[in-house]
Computed example of a mutant assay.
Amino acid sequence: MSIEISKEARQQAIASIERYFMTHMEEPISNLAAGGLLGFFLEEIGPLIYNKAVSDVQAQIQARVAEVDIEVHEEAFGYWQKSGHSRKT
């Protein structure tokens, strides 16, 4: 599965890469080269991050499912205790 990002996100990411190179590297990077680098990262490293995120979400969902019985549990035979009904004497 390839990781796709929106056109706007791609433009922002390329601008961020260009800014990073201007700030931290000895030579700037062109817009075309920054786009290529972004494509490489999305294809090569993106799946690692994506899979980690999926794993994290699965763990969160499993934890919530494990708590469902606690959150929605109802005691059986509680009519007499809850309603205040008593036996006629």
Rank of each mutant, 00 (worst) to 15 (best):
residue 29 I to G: 10
residue 27 E to W: 12
residue 53 A to Y: 08
residue 60 Q to H: 10
residue 67 E to P: 06
residue 40 F to I: 05
residue 14 I to A: 06
residue 54 V to H: 13
residue 3 I to R: 08
residue 77 F to I: 00
residue 29 I to N: 11
residue 25 M to I: 06
residue 1 M to W: 04
residue 19 R to S: 10
residue 11 Q to Y: 05
residue 56 D to W: 01
residue 71 E to P: 00
residue 47 P to F: 01
residue 78 G to F: 00
residue 75 E to K: 00
residue 20 Y to D: 07
residue 28 P to G: 09
residue 66 A to E: 15
residue 2 S to C: 02
residue 46 G to H: 11
residue 60 Q to S: 08
residue 67 E to I: 00
residue 52 K to R: 10
residue 50 Y to F: 13
residue 30 S to Y: 06
residue 66 A to W: 05
residue 3 I to Y: 02
residue 3 I to A: 06
residue 1 M to V: 02
residue 75 E to A: 00
residue 8 E to M: 04
residue 37 L to Y: 08
residue 32 L to I: 06
residue 6 S to Q: 08
residue 65 V to T: 13
residue 64 R to Q: 15
residue 12 Q to P: 04
residue 19 R to V: 02
residue 51 N to G: 03
residue 18 E to P: 00
residue 86 S to P: 07
residue 15 A to D: 14
residue 70 I to Q: 14
residue 73 H to T: 05
residue 62 Q to S: 03
residue 41 F to K: 01
residue 14 I to W: 03
residue 74 E to V: 05
residue 12 Q to A: 15
residue 9 A to I: 07
residue 16 S to D: 15
residue 5 I to W: 09
residue 8 E to G: 01
residue 20 Y to R: 11
residue 52 K to V: 03
residue 48 L to I: 11
residue 67 E to S: 09
residue 26 E to A: 11
residue 37 L to H: 04
residue 88 K to C: 08
residue 14 I to Y: 03
residue 79 Y to N: 06
residue 78 G to P: 00
residue 45 I to E: 15
residue 19 R to A: 13
residue 17 I to K: 03
residue 30 S to Q: 07
residue 67 E to G: 07
residue 22 M to E: 12
residue 54 V to D: 14
residue 48 L to P: 01
residue 81 Q to I: 02
residue 15 A to S: 14
residue 4 E to A: 09
residue 25 M to D: 07
residue 18 E to K: 06
residue 70 I to T: 13
residue 30 S to W: 09
residue 56 D to T: 06
residue 18 E to W: 00
residue 76 A to M: 13
residue 84 G to S: 02
residue 79 Y to F: 14
residue 68 V to W: 14
residue 71 E to V: 14
residue 30 S to L: 05
residue 53 A to M: 12
residue 87 R to E: 15
residue 18 E to F: 00
residue 2 S to R: 09
residue 41 F to R: 03
residue 8 E to S: 07
residue 38 L to R: 04
residue 45 I to G: 04
residue 30 S to D: 09
residue 62 Q to M: 05
residue 58 Q to I: 11
residue 83 S to P: 01
residue 64 R to S: 15
residue 72 V to H: 09
residue 49 I to P: 02
residue 14 I to F: 02
residue 4 E to F: 01
residue 49 I to N: 03
residue 24 H to V: 11
residue 71 E to K: 15
residue 32 L to C: 05
residue 84 G to L: 02
residue 50 Y to E: 09
residue 22 M to Y: 05
residue 4 E to K: 04
residue 38 L to T: 06
residue 77 F to L: 12
residue 34 A to Q: 02
residue 24 H to L: 06
